[in-house]
């Protein structure tokens, strides 16, 4: 919490998002809150469909509304609620203040334009830079993301780059306007381990050198342990636990997090049978009443079927579980 002002760099407050269709309303984000400070890495973890990307899209202001709607909540950037801004103002924030690398980045590049042209595009269109200026900056950005021989390669096309290099191009594009917040949505899932490690190194270096706040969306518990400062765990459109990275791996305070950590095979621990989380991820069209995790939870009590658990604050962390204290003291 180094920011001199009383605001966080970015703060999502009690956000709700739903999708409206002819079949009815699906509530996919149900009261999400998290915050981010400069130079910090927040990992957002959760299984497929838990709402990680939709939350990020809401922050970026790129949800299609309709069908999406935000019935309530705030997204504060330096204390200003982005949800109250005009589309024109929001466009200024996008890219310049908050930028994003997308989940399917590898297919997001346009095959018919050279990569340097695509990196510089936003500078020509939004900042009125000349072609030559944009090209110069594109080369600088390619150097920044460590693409070798940037001067020679600035005119190359996407298919001439490997997957890892294309991801670097995407990162360069997202950095073109010096954003203060970078949201990376599964930036390495499509890449091989050795290349994954290179990209995570790069993101870590950039965050430090540019003092950016980094939101890293992932389902990989290994990557998180390597790079995150804090972790927010999502389940059925809520944050069910948030904690500094060391605390969560040492002693999770929510049964879901605990189950996740127990169910991954680990290179440094060759176990016998793997622990599993029974049952299936929830169907968002009918989220169970009370605690959404109760049908799968080994700790569940009758109260869990009826009462939605509040946030239980435990020092620097919290858990949305009626029995947070018991879970955390039972260790990992």
């Amino acid at each position: 919490m180094s920011a001199p002002a009383k605001h966080h760099l970015l703060e999502v407050k009690d956000l709700f998002v739903e999708f409206r269709s002819r079949d009815g309303v699906t509530k996919v984000i149900n009261g999400v809150s998290y915050h981010l400070d400069p130079g910090e890495t927040l990992a957002v973890l959760g299984e497929s469909g838990s709402g990680k990307s939709v939350t990020a899209q809401a922050i970026m202001g790129i949800l299609d509304m309709p069908p999406a709607a935000i019935p309530s909540g705030q997204i504060l950037y330096n204390g200003v609620d982005l949800l109250t801004l005009s589309e024109e103002k929001r466009r200024e924030v996008r890219g310049k203040e908050i930028s994003m690398i997308f989940q399917d980045a590898l297919s997001a590049l346009n095959p018919v334009f050279p990569v340097g042209w695509q990196i510089g595009e936003v500078l020509r269109k939004r900042e009125g830079k000349s072609r030559a200026e944009a090209r110069k900056r594109a080369i600088e950005l390619m150097d920044l993301v460590k693409i070798p021989a940037s001067k020679q390669r600035v005119g190359d096309y996407p298919h001439q780059f490997s997957g890892g290099m294309r991801q670097r191009v995407m990162i360069a594009m997202s950095l073109a306007q010096d954003p203060k917040v970078l949201i990376a949505d599964e930036p390495t899932t499509a890449l091989d381990v050795t290349v994954q490690a290179q990209i995570m190194d790069l993101l870590g270096d950039l965050r430090r050198d540019l003092n950016m706040g980094l939101i890293l969306i992932t389902h990989d518990l290994g990557v998180v342990a390597d790079v995150a400062d804090r972790i927010a765990v999502m389940y059925a459109g809520r944050i069910i636990e948030e904690a500094p990275v060391f605390d969560i791996y040492e002693a999770p305070a929510h049964p879901y997090t605990k189950g996740l950590l127990a169910s991954i095979p680990r290179l440094d621990m060759r176990g016998q049978e793997l622990a599993t989380i029974k049952g299936l991820p929830p169907n968002l069209a009918k989220i169970p009443p009370g605690c959404p995790f109760h049908p799968r939870c080994p700790y569940a009590q009758p109260i869990c079927r009826e009462v939605v658990p509040a946030k239980h604050v435990l020092g620097p962390r919290y858990s949305a579980c009626h029995f947070a204290q018991e879970v955390v003291t039972s260790g990992n």
């Binding site: 490997s162 190194d201 680990r266």
Partner: peptide, 23 residues
């Protein structure tokens, strides 16, 4: 060496060999 270990305590104790380039 590049496989992330799901334990933050391993962070500075792993000797990661960084391969250059791609396959």
């Amino acid at each position: 060496s590049a496989v992330p270990v799901p334990d933050p305590r391993a962070r500075n104790h792993r000797e990661i060999i960084r391969l250059e380039g791609d396959v």
